[in-house]
Write a protein that binds this DNA or RNA. Structure first.
Lengths: 243, 243
DNA sequence: CTTCTTTATAGTCAGTGTGACCATAAAGAA
DNA sequence: TTCTTTATGGTCACACTGACTATAAAGAAG
């Protein structure tokens, strides 16, 4: 019996606060970064935390997450619509917030390399942190961040999601960099090419072969994200092999 | 800023009710079944629904799910500890319950074939339903059930979870039946054997080769669930192939 | 007691995908 | 020019899988 049990009494349930927490990831300078905000109040004053906030009375958690994503990145609601956002899991430990009973629905967002965030609406400091170099975060956010990292690492294996970290047009080298950064491995370049190009719908070549400059070396062809979302067969991490 | 935002005011947040909903799956008679309870009250009176209930003030959602699982199956807390239980996702549509704002954390439980449930503590009728033959369920439970089915189908590909549907000792034929039932496909028996037996830690042979009777045909060797949880490389469904 | 049916188990073989390579092309830097 | 760097094209052996054949061991049918 649910959502509300049979013997339903409006005063029988415990009131909870419901929040969303966002792990916003990006790849910059060959490192995985996550967006954090500095807390200006107790508890955990001065500690860094995942951005997030209350779910409002008439919105879903996903809408709340999308709203927070726009606020924290300083972009418009429309522009963040294109970003990949997915629900991770919900954290419900009774003591996770010392002040009150709060359950938090965690989301992971994957964004291309964005400018440094403006100092969020409420003047809180916000910046990109290299994952693994974040000090201890507020609340249970270390755990959420670790779970989020694990999840997107796994998602790269079975989905075409890596393109969500790239700009509209990208080279295969950049796409490979996403995998190498998130998984913290190095991949064989020709093999990676073969896998991506033989998977229908993963990427599509940009016509009129323009090529990208940027550094030394032969210019690379440009690609766009394709229509496929699943990756069959998967692209398994070099470790993970039991064989 | 989260779980509670910076400008925190104890009366600023909307109070939500938080519930858990359980999709309890089992395989019986070569069909996937799910445990449902009949609603005795409005709304959706007379409709069937996933079992669930409020999260209590001092428990986590997982504890609440485990508690409900014990109540609905009529087993003790200790015995349900062995069952696989995993958080699926959280449903937060503002209108999902017409009476009040309720967010529900959905869990999937995998159990071996159990006896028909006793008539739950609160006299609600409960029974196993073959998936796909459930009428429209109460609330958004059709959606939750479909999501849960999708999820466990995907989990079978990459994990050794199928053993959770089996009793302590089982034959490879029974294990194969789990895959065929959840995926609704037929698998080649020798190939399935090979895959399971060459995956270290998926199953371990029961010593002193006792063999199981039950029907006609050659008796089968018995196996126990092994220590492995991940399945590398995965056992992909016959469809799912993009190749 | 055969014969048939059913299920379990053992093995073969070709095709696919992958990891580990090697080779060449095209750019900037020395 | 030569070196270095990155992109791209290709080969080869191995691992895994799907399809298939064959044999073993039980109950059922005659």
């Amino acid at each position: 019996m649910s959502p509300a049990p049979e013997g339903y009494d409006p005063r029988a349930f415990t009131p909870f606060a419901v929040t969303v927490d966002l792990a916003v990831f990006t790849v910059r300078e060959e490192r995985l970064h996550v967006l954090l905000v500095e807390r200006g109040q107790e508890p955990y004053r001065g500690r860094w935390a995942l951005p997030g906030g209350f779910v409002l009375p008439r919105e879903s958690a996903e809408e709340a997450a999308r709203r927070e994503l726009a606020e924290e990145t300083g972009l418009t609601q429309e522009s963040v619509c294109a970003f990949h956002l997915e629900q991770l899991r919900t954290y419900t430990d009774p003591d996770r917030d010392p002040r009150m009973r709060v359950v938090s629905v965690a989301y992971a967002a994957l964004v291309p390399d964005l400018p440094e965030p403006r100092g969020g609406g409420d003047a809180a400091r916000a910046r990109w942190w290299e994952t693994g170099r974040t000090g201890p975060l507020a609340f249970d956010h270390d755990r959420i961040l670790a779970d989020a990292h694990d999840r997107i690492g796994a998602r790269l294996e079975y989905s075409c999601l890596a393109t969500a970290f790239c700009p509209a047009e990208f080279t295969l080298g950049e796409l490979q960099q996403v995998y190498e950064t998130v998984w913290d491995v190095t991949l064989d370049r020709p093999n990676f090419r073969r896998k991506v190009l033989t998977t229908p719908g993963f990427v599509e070549a940009v016509e009129g072969p323009p090529r990208r400059t940027g550094g030394r070396g032969k210019p690379a062809a440009l690609y766009r994200a394709g229509a496929a979302t699943a990756l069959h067969p998967p692209l398994l991490r070099p470790e993970g092999r039991t064989t």
